[in-house]
Simulated scan of single mutants.
Amino acid sequence: MRKTGFVMLAAMLAGACQNDAQPAANAAENTAIENEADATNYQAEVIGLPLNARQGVFLRAVRDAGLTCQQVTESEKLEDREGNPTWRAICDGDSPHIISITRDGTAKILSRSDAR
């Protein structure tokens, strides 16, 4: 009876170890997927967009920053700032915003509160 109990305990422990290995494998796979996503160069993605699509990105960035903008009416590429591609985006024909895009896709916005 004792031997049977020991064998069953050993079988249960072996099964538990196998179950622990599977989440570890899934965690490694998930980390690899996240690292692959981190490798996306959003700067190149934004630069490669057609003008209207790029201005849509600028519109979303300005609005996400809590600034008022109904439409980006024009944009122009400026000299890179801190190694990040930078544009001047004009909202509604008269509100300029300087937008830099970091490699991870963050939009850094510099706006003048007295632009109007």
Rank of each mutant, 00 (worst) to 15 (best):
T40Y: 09
G105H: 00
D104Y: 10
S75P: 06
N84L: 03
K3L: 15
G15M: 10
C91A: 07
N35G: 01
N41M: 04
N26C: 07
A25P: 00
T106H: 08
L67I: 02
L13A: 15
G66A: 03
A16L: 14
A14S: 14
I109H: 00
R63N: 12
G56I: 07
G105K: 00
F58L: 04
E29W: 12
Y42E: 01
N52H: 08
E34A: 15
I99F: 04
A16C: 13
L9R: 13
Q55L: 07
R2M: 08
K77P: 05
P85T: 05
D38L: 14
D80N: 11
S100Y: 04
S113Y: 07
E79I: 03
G48V: 06
G15H: 08
W87F: 04
D104E: 15
L49M: 13
L9W: 11
G105Y: 00
I101R: 05
Q55H: 09
N41K: 05
H97V: 04
H97P: 02
A10L: 15
D80R: 04
Q43W: 04
L110G: 01
T4R: 15
L78D: 07
F58P: 03
S111I: 01
R63M: 06
Q43C: 12
D104A: 13
R63L: 10
I101N: 07
A25I: 05
R54M: 06
C69M: 01
A115P: 00
E76I: 08
T102M: 10
S95W: 12
E29K: 14
Q43E: 15
A24W: 12
A10V: 14
D20L: 13
I99T: 05
A53Y: 08
L110E: 06
N19L: 15
N19T: 14
L110Y: 02
A44M: 05
A53M: 09
V72R: 02
G48L: 05
A28P: 03
L59C: 06
D94V: 08
T73D: 06
Y42V: 00
E34M: 14
V62K: 02
R116W: 09
A89T: 03
A53E: 15
Q55C: 03
G5K: 12
V7N: 02
A107D: 00
I90W: 05
E45L: 11
R63V: 11
T40N: 12
P96F: 09
R103V: 07
T40G: 04
A21S: 12
D94T: 08
A61G: 02
T40L: 13
R81S: 10
R116P: 11
K108F: 05
I99H: 03
A37D: 10
L67G: 01
M1Q: 05
G15T: 09
V57T: 02
G15Q: 09
R2Q: 10
E29I: 08
E76V: 11
G66T: 05
S95Y: 13
A65M: 03
G83W: 01
L59R: 11
R2T: 12
K77R: 15
A25L: 10
T31G: 00
A32F: 03
G56H: 07
F58H: 13
V57R: 10
E76C: 02
K77Y: 11
D114H: 09
A37W: 14
G83I: 01
N19E: 14
R54K: 12
Q71N: 03
A14L: 15
K3G: 09
D20S: 04
A115M: 00
K3Y: 14
T40F: 10
I99K: 04
T31M: 06
M1A: 10
